[in-house]
Design a protein around this nucleic acid. Structure first.
Lengths: 214, 214
DNA sequence: TATAATAAGTTTGCGCTGTAAACATATCGT
DNA sequence: ACGATATGTTTACAGCGCAAACTTATTATA
């Protein structure tokens, strides 16, 4: 994803549009394993601009990291959307697809995942686009959730709360995998992970599948 | 917790025992809100030693942070143990107590929590004491879990996997609270949190309460 | 079309950090 | 008593975030 000349953001200045280039470079550095120790100067160097150029587009390091995290969130959401459309239209299938994609993304991009949920940045009252990205991520899950509630399949608890419960489980497992608190002993490899994701999903499903309110 | 002269660690050198003093100072700095941005020099300054003194006790910054994280984990485990002994001896009660204490700790020490689970440090193959602390944290939960399995109350799935499922849910919710991804809209305050913890626990309990294997 | 205003990028500089190396001193084993 | 070793200090250096002053390209306006 090099400098794109899409209709939206900036015009054609010196660089093209540096803002996006910096975000992309940041994502690449993270992907290359440079860890959460990304610094403004490395990113600038990678793009080929001076080390203070980013300050024309981001107030400080935190704002760049927030933008990177937000882009990562959108990438995750895209991945989820793509997959979830291909599975049968029942709650369990959608839930399992959501969980599987989420965890898969976390394993594929551990450093990015860490950055995405490493706080401080999460001023998502200030940054409305971040809120938007979150809503986008959960949209397919919420939709099947409501459908399932209408069909008396799962508890009538507020869907926001149900979403949070599901997110907690999936995100928690992802976090523990990313932070290496899991495996080490078990079968290792993807097989054990897949099995665990299945267990988490089953627990969620049977825990939520009630006709009353929790 | 100033410099202690317990029987275990080091003798009475120049400082007393600096290692523990550095860990304590680090915990205090984190508690004072200095965030995850703790640096070696501040910690050394706080203790009153030169800024390279820590290198006689920790190979690098990461090792100090790992030690701080480990101490934090033990504090959490202590808190859980203290509480869980006071509740009725049934699975649901113990589970709820575990969850409540875990989340409460996360809310009380968000920065520490972040540091404890911010990766890289988690070489808990290399550091056996960290593994020990983890086992200590989960010991009361595992114990009631096995008891409950024996009584045909919950699924006969491997207890390690069940523990991981429970941990995922509780830790995930804690993480989302710490990173400010939750609340903002809801009732705020501790009431909404308590309610959510209850929902998580209920979901876990009903999701796991089956006589077969998941 | 010329030119002032402004947006985008650069250079320079400062204080801070992590950490390596050389040095100093207290403690302990012999 | 004394050398070895553990502990702490001083000095030094490169890299970082960021502020300020400067340069250059773009845009708006006359």
């Amino acid at each position: 994803m090099p400098k794109s000349d899409q209709p939206k953001p900036k015009k054609q200045y010196h660089h093209g549009n540096l803002r996006q280039a910096l975000i992309d470079a940041g994502l690449e550095l993270i992907a290359e394993g440079h860890g959460a120790q990304i610094d403004l100067r490395k990113v600038a160097r990678k793009v080929g601009v001076s080390h203070t150029a980013p300050y024309r587009h981001f107030a400080d390091r935190n704002e760049l990291m927030a933008a990177i995290a937000e882009e990562g969130l959108r990438n995750l959401a895209d991945k989820v959307h793509r997959k979830i459309e291909t599975v049968p239209d029942d709650f369990l299938s959608k839930l399992e697809a959501f969980a599987r994609e989420y965890v898969e993304f976390a394993i594929a991009h551990p450093q990015l995942m860490r950055e995405m949920f490493s706080g401080i940045n999460t001023d998502y009252d200030a940054h409305p686009t971040l809120r938007q990205a979150l809503l986008y991520l959960f949209e397919p899950l919420v939709s099947t959730l409501k459908q399932s509630q209408a069909a008396d399949e799962i508890a009538k608890t507020e869907y926001v709360h149900l979403t949070l419960i599901i997110w907690s489980m999936i995100h928690g497992f992802s976090a523990l995998v990313v932070e290496n608190y899991v495996i080490r002993k078990s079968l290792q490899g993807t097989e054990a992970i897949d099995n665990m994701v299945h267990l988490c999903v089953q627990t969620l499903y049977h825990g939520l599948a009630r006709k009353d309110t929790l």
